[in-house]
Amino acid sequence: MNRYISYFRPVIYIVIFTLILGFVYPLIITMLSSVLFPVQSHGSLVFNSNGSVAGSKIIGINFTGPQYFVGRPSATNGGPYNASWSGGSNYGPTYLPLIAKIKDRTEFWRNLGIEGEIPSDLVMASGSGLDPDISLNAALLQVPLISKSRNISSVILESLVNVESNRQPAFFSGRYVNIFALNKALDNLSQEV
């Protein structure tokens, strides 16, 4: 009997550990999290008024201007902000097509009348391709454009950006804003005005 067991010992160990680590552990975590953090564990979803899902609070989506604040460039496969295939451009720092791309994006902002320095996050693609945030400066830079297209004063918009940016922990990384939250707040503001 003992010899029989020792022959199959590795297999028994694999089976036991697969049960504990591959099933019991993830299932316990799933059950705990659905009680403790029901919103986060299911993706921090944002719902429309009719109950359908608009998106996720923490996954970037591809806004276009000038009605809305625009997020970072995204290099995901199959078009920007493709949430089902995350990833960055993986272009090296001396790769000419990358430099050309960044130049194009810089010119895009210049053509809209933006002068002065452009924050790097606004012209360079994120690592995930789904970055939900832009830096505070990248948001402030867009205020004049939004102001013109929505007819809201720049001062109000700037304070809106600042309020939204204060919702994010800035201690480690400098101040930034969540694009989705900012644009929702912007729509609410427009309705009030």
């Binding site: 960055g88 810089t106 320095e117 924050p119 790097s120 996050d121 012209v123 994120s126 945030d133 400098g174």
Partner: peptide, 23 residues
């Protein structure tokens, strides 16, 4: 190359805003 184009900040290609340079 990017500084000459009038871009400020660290090279953000491949980085996430919420982590910053330190993170």
């Amino acid at each position: 190359a990017f500084k000459d184009m009038g871009i400020t900040g660290i090279p953000m290609e491949g980085k996430e805003v919420r982590f910053g340079l330190l993170g």
